[in-house]
Write a protein that binds this DNA or RNA. Sequence first.
RNA 1: GCCGGGGUGGCGGAAUGGUAGACGCACUGGACUUAAAAUCCAGUGGGAGGUUUCUCCCGUACCGGUUCGAGUCCGGUCCUCGGUACCA
Length: 822
Amino acid sequence: MKYPFKEVEEKWQKNWEDSKVYKTDLSDLAKKLYCLVMFIYPSGAKLHCGHWYNYGPTDSWARLKKLQGYNVFEPMGYDAFGLPAENYAIKTGVHPQDSTFKNIEDIREQLKTMGCMYDWDAELMTCVPEYYKWNQWLFIQLYNKGLAYRKKAPVNWCPSCQTVLANEQVENDGSCERCGAMVEQKNLTQWFYKITNYAEELLEGLNKIDWPEKTKLMQTNWIGKSTGSEVVFGIEGSNETFTVFTTRPDTLFGVTYAVIAPENELVDRITKPEFKKAVEEYRNSVKSLSEIERTSTVKEKTGVPTGAFAINPVNGEKVPIWIADYVLASYGTGCVMAVPAHDERDFAFAKKFNLPIRKVILKDGTGENDELLEAFTEVGTMINSEQFNGLPSDTGIEKVTDFLESKNQGKKKINYRLRDWLISRQRYWGTPIPIVYCEKCGELPVPENQLPVELPYDVDFKPDGGSPLAGNKDFVNTVCPKCGGHATRDVDTMDTFMDSSWYYLRYLNPRFSEGIFDTKLGNEWTPVDMYVGGAEHATMHLLYARFLHKFLRDINLVNSDEPFTKLIHQGTITNQGAKMSKSRGNVVNPDGFIKEYGTDVFRMYLMFMGPYELGGDWSDKGIVGVDRFVQRTYSLFEGAKDILKLSAPAAKYAVSEMNDAEKSVYRKVNQTVAKFAGEVENFRFNTAVAFLMELVNELSKNISGCRKEIAAYVFERFAVMLGPLAPHLAEECWNILGNETMLFEKPVWFEADPDALTVDEVTIAVQVNGKLRATVVVPVNSAQNDVKNAVFSDKKVLVHTEGKQIVKEIYVPNKIYNIVVK
RNA sequence: GCCGGGGUGGCGGAAUGGUAGACGCACUGGACUUAAAAUCCAGUGGGAGGUUUCUCCCGUACCGGUUCGAGUCCGGUCCUCGGUACCA
């Protein structure tokens, strides 16, 4: 009979649910295991293949652990705030809350058909007051510790989304990550979190976690630690000074000009009157450029002089001060000392504007007067540097800094590229920022007992450049918690990365009302043991979550340093070479495949496609192969109905007492058992599926030649191995065999019989000069002399060796016999 | 530009420095069938010859190296995918 996947899948899903098989007992900590996937954004596009590729195989991993006796907690929820719902509202008039709840209903149903082990009692969504109340609470804790602050800053403004984007959310070409519109620069007062306070610890912590090296490297580069010095320059005819950060104080004698970021306030004060016009024009021309455009390497260098001069602290020399867009206000001090001879950017700039280039580091083997054709940025010998002449430049770095320090004109400094996390969004569909502004008392946090600040339903979310909440007078107008006078609320909402930075703690009890989460459970169940999600979150979500976890630790709410012990990225499933997205219209909906083949086949096909971490281009060409495997498996089990009731298999059998078919089958099943768990354990699902296919091929051939009890032994193990990869099918097969309890109700896992893995004969490859010429079958672990006899009685070997001089023979036991001839 | 993956049959992909191509798709032949589909069995990297049981040559993007032996290690080149963007 054809495998009736629809009835079978529905039946076991219902049985699992009725028996609460996937309800995790969080009080049982003996073998606790927290397996987490990045929660889902409930868009109208529903679940697509990419989601399945994330969730299905991860669930298979978790199921292996469940069968191995772990107490697995696997929750699922909805990252429900965010721009797309609001954009959809602007387009269609459907309120974000209504569309979001509707989408969640639909997606929940889809998720349930996947048949994952989600503990649905732990389900959460971020757009309800019970959740976002704690975003606000957490904001206030950060505020009270001085880690949430406001500042005016140039920000990326997306004219289409009408919102500010973090740097990280702007694409390479200067377009908005979400809608693709070109991003502009705009100055707004915004809330920031001081993630930079944790820069060093975020860097250090990477050594303690089992994450992909490339992800750790990306975070390392993102944090961008660099060790150098701050050097104070005077300004001619002024009491003002400015500070530059440099990693190359050894080149200080080579400074021939200085550059200040065009936005820097100092520019107003130092620019000479006759330069004012040109400076203003240049500043305006730069304003329209995004940071991405400004810093493009292909862009020609631009800049103008200010007419002011800087005084070099080491030699008192006067050098002109320029402004140029290649210096960024947001990195370091926003001021740079320019050493064209030894910095590529400065070199290009100096060449273009005919500024002097002075060599102060001599490359070994070159002359002092040789012309420089490009900047020399490596270590050499210091020249033209007064008392430092002759020193190797790497030693000079420290000596020059010491000298500056003694004159109080510089010091060692560690600089980070990481910037503070901008969390304000001029948007409706998010967590209101719990701050009020009182005319008398100023800026005040909302008292904790007044939380949550509820997001009102009634707003006009037409895009007009401002925050939609500003239009709701009932929301905006409030009383000052301090003086009782009139006050207004902050009308911005929070970045949704806030929601996703601590959700893994809330899952443990989403209804907990006495605090942000149950700290006892948090300490017992986190860090998360296994976290699986896309590599695109390497520097945003995954860095923010680490930051807030450390903050929660510092206010004694968690007892660990890191949120996610082990991290895996699933690869991207593309379609016709492009990432699946609604806007491209290339989303592959799995529903049709589920209808035709069932959820187990679809899940297994995704796993069979290739290495999990590589992903690949979508094609349904091979799915019939997996379906055939399921059909063959099912009919094999049908032939073993109630076999466990008829014949209870022993724990192991002696191979010597078996017939050929039994030997072959018994060995194969034990070989499979021996390697299967390791494959699933390490997310090598493709080979795990292949091994089960090999087993089916073997059983098709030989199972009919086996005694009942051997067959029972084999089928029992086969059904259990199906468990992680095809849970519904496995449960059905387990039942067919005559088991009274469900596999996932009373988990079972088998170990291989080591005696079945030993072989008494091996095939050895015989090579002549590295070329395969024959194979010989010899007893396992044969001595070289015994093999040699077999080798040299082989005709093909003789053909290639006779009449030639044997130079050398290499024998690797049980593997190879190589003869080198001349 | 820099950093990090990856390049293996017609296709998806397997291979602790030791018989390259497991497993699957597609294809070919056979069985079953009135026929087709489904299923089952067999074959299947390319080429040359013997053509039944065989033998040889070539072959893991390209060039070179280490080694008895390289898809795997080393040096260089090309292509491709991701990350990043003058970070002083």
